[in-house]
Deep mutational scan, measured.
Amino acid sequence: HNLTITQGKLFFHYNPKLCLSEIHKMEEVSGTKGRQERNDIALKTNGDQASCENELLKFSYIRTSFDKILLRWEPYWPPDFRDLLGFMLFYKEAPYQNVTEFDGQDACGSNSWTVVDIDPPLRSNDPKSQNHPGWLMRGLKPWTQYAIFVKTLVTFSDERRTYGAKSDIIYVQTDATNPSVPLDPISVSNSSSQIILKWKPPSDPNGNITHYLVFWERQAEDSELFELDYCLKGLKLPSRTWSPPFESEDSQKHNQSEYEDSAGECCSCPKTDSQILKELEESSFRKTFEDYLHNVVFVPRKTSSGTGAEDPRPSRKRRSLGDVGNVTVAVPTVAAFPNTSSTSVPTSPEEHRPFEKVVNKESLVISGLRHFTGYRIELQACNQDTPEERCSVAAYVSARTMPEAKADDIVGPVTHEIFENNVVHLMWQEPKEPNGLIVLYEVSYRRYGDEELHLCVSRKHFALERGCRLRGLSPGNYSVRIRATSLAGNGSWTEPTYFYVTDYLDVPSNIA
């Protein structure tokens, strides 16, 4: 807008934040220059609390790290170098490059900038070799853009010569660093050979998330399962459950009422301010606690030095998902009996873990797994792929695949051998790939016309006998059925096997 004052003059007093240069501009645009008398524009009460600059400061050096910015700028000295009290560095987070010096300023003089007072450097006698002032900004957020400017702080001049310097606002972004852990990993099994893994992005990506790394490792069953005799009275049979499938998407929606109208769909109840505040506090606490764990609990591995020492970490090797089922080394339970199943799973520490690289999504279907087997899954978020990966501390989750139908069934015939004193040795093959492992066998036998009897055969007993022995049988026709019990439950009964026990007292003698 054009402003013209045809008559009258300007009068400025007691404006401590208004620089004289701005008042002189007002004289020019209003056409009143030359009308004012000496005392109409006070030299001592206008701009006496402001830094009124008329020179431009330029930054000469900028260096960044993930949490620091090192700045240096060209030296500046007023005509009387004693008038320079120091520099004021202003900075704040700036997602967009549209910041002005006066953003967030209120009537009390406060604003949204963080201000650092910096002492002037030592003055050199040689004007050509003056030290460049600077400042190291610490405690910054990774991968965050900051708006920065600097200006001088000078003393009051009796001659009211307006001098000083100020830089333009520059924008500097800190470097990326390792992201925080992925949030809320959930693993479920939808079949006997697959596990579905879902997660949420890290709360602090500290860069642009480029991919996720998912490692999985087959877990050995508890050692007590191999040692305890679950045929003993009072000892509860062990059981394991597989990871249940995901709930429906509708039930997972946030901010939804727990109660549904019987007449149909209901609208979600909005969260109160107290609920939102509580969630923010919980989120802040979780982030602080995660940072504490990362800094205190997890110790970084030592990389190899120039002395030739090897990095103890196993090298990563990509495998196809079809090879995942046989990740671990199978060892027989008892070496003397080769027909026992290889369900003991000690994992070799030198073995390469299978892994998958996930790009542009937060889910993965891990296939080719062994049925009813526990897996430990390790999830890392990465925001750099080359020249070397920059990934987060791992988040861990466990899951067990679903049982395989008929995996616990005894394959092959049940054979028998009759000894003296009416002892019958029953023999059968253990299931080759049971659900988890076989903890015991149930032997059901009966003599024709009598009630059915049951015998429990422990895992250890089966390994020693290759089956079991029935003792003290009365003469007669017998039928026997056997079924295995694994961590997933009972298998199917075998087809009945028949044998006849004679009275050993009636056996004919070869003595003449």
Score class of each variant (00 low, 15 high):
207 G>L: 02
207 G>C: 01
208 N>M: 07
208 N>Y: 11
209 I>D: 09
210 T>L: 10
213 L>H: 10
213 L>S: 15
214 V>G: 04
215 F>Q: 12
216 W>G: 05
216 W>C: 09
216 W>D: 00
216 W>K: 10
218 R>D: 03
219 Q>S: 05
219 Q>F: 13
221 E>T: 06
222 D>V: 10
222 D>W: 14
227 E>I: 11
227 E>V: 09
228 L>D: 10
228 L>N: 09
232 L>R: 13
233 K>S: 11
234 G>W: 06
234 G>V: 09
235 L>I: 08
238 P>S: 06
239 S>V: 05
240 R>G: 14
243 S>W: 08
246 F>D: 09
246 F>V: 07
246 F>N: 15
248 S>T: 05
249 E>I: 06
252 Q>W: 10
252 Q>F: 14
256 Q>P: 10
257 S>N: 06
263 A>N: 15
266 C>P: 03
268 S>I: 12
268 S>L: 11
269 C>P: 05
269 C>R: 07
271 K>V: 05
271 K>D: 12
274 S>L: 06
274 S>M: 06
275 Q>K: 08
278 K>P: 12
281 E>T: 09
282 E>L: 10
282 E>K: 06
282 E>W: 15
284 S>V: 14
285 F>N: 04
286 R>C: 11
287 K>H: 11
287 K>W: 15
292 Y>C: 01
294 H>G: 09
294 H>M: 15
297 V>Q: 14
299 V>W: 03
301 R>K: 13
304 S>T: 04
307 T>C: 07
309 A>F: 09
312 P>T: 10
314 P>L: 06
314 P>V: 03
315 S>E: 12
315 S>N: 12
317 K>I: 10
318 R>A: 11
318 R>S: 12
320 S>K: 15
320 S>Q: 07
320 S>D: 08
321 L>V: 11
323 D>M: 15
327 V>E: 07
328 T>L: 12
332 P>H: 14
334 V>S: 08
334 V>H: 13
335 A>L: 14
336 A>F: 10
340 T>W: 14
343 T>W: 12
343 T>V: 06
343 T>G: 11
344 S>K: 07
345 V>N: 06
345 V>W: 11
347 T>L: 13
350 E>I: 05
354 P>S: 12
354 P>L: 12
355 F>L: 09
357 K>L: 09
357 K>G: 05
361 K>F: 12
363 S>V: 14
366 I>S: 01
367 S>C: 13
368 G>S: 08
369 L>I: 02
370 R>K: 14
371 H>C: 12
371 H>A: 09
375 Y>S: 01
375 Y>E: 00
377 I>L: 13
379 L>N: 02
379 L>C: 09
384 Q>S: 12
384 Q>V: 10
385 D>C: 10
385 D>P: 05
385 D>M: 05
387 P>Y: 03
389 E>K: 14
389 E>Q: 13
390 R>M: 02
392 S>Q: 03
394 A>T: 12
399 A>I: 11
402 M>F: 15
405 A>K: 14
406 K>A: 15
410 I>A: 12
410 I>L: 11
412 G>S: 14
412 G>T: 07
416 H>F: 06
417 E>H: 02
417 E>G: 08
422 N>R: 13
423 V>H: 09
423 V>Q: 09
424 V>T: 03
427 M>L: 08
431 P>I: 00
432 K>Y: 10
433 E>P: 02
433 E>Q: 07
434 P>Y: 03
436 G>N: 03
438 I>F: 02
442 E>R: 06
443 V>R: 01
444 S>P: 00
446 R>P: 00
455 L>W: 06
456 C>P: 05
456 C>M: 02
458 S>H: 03
458 S>Y: 08
462 F>L: 05
462 F>H: 13
465 E>P: 01
468 C>E: 01
474 S>Y: 13
477 N>A: 07
477 N>T: 02
480 V>M: 13
481 R>W: 03
481 R>T: 05
482 I>G: 00
489 G>N: 14
490 N>W: 14
495 E>S: 08
496 P>I: 10
498 Y>L: 05
498 Y>M: 10
499 F>E: 00
500 Y>P: 03
503 D>F: 03
505 L>F: 12
505 L>C: 07
507 V>H: 01
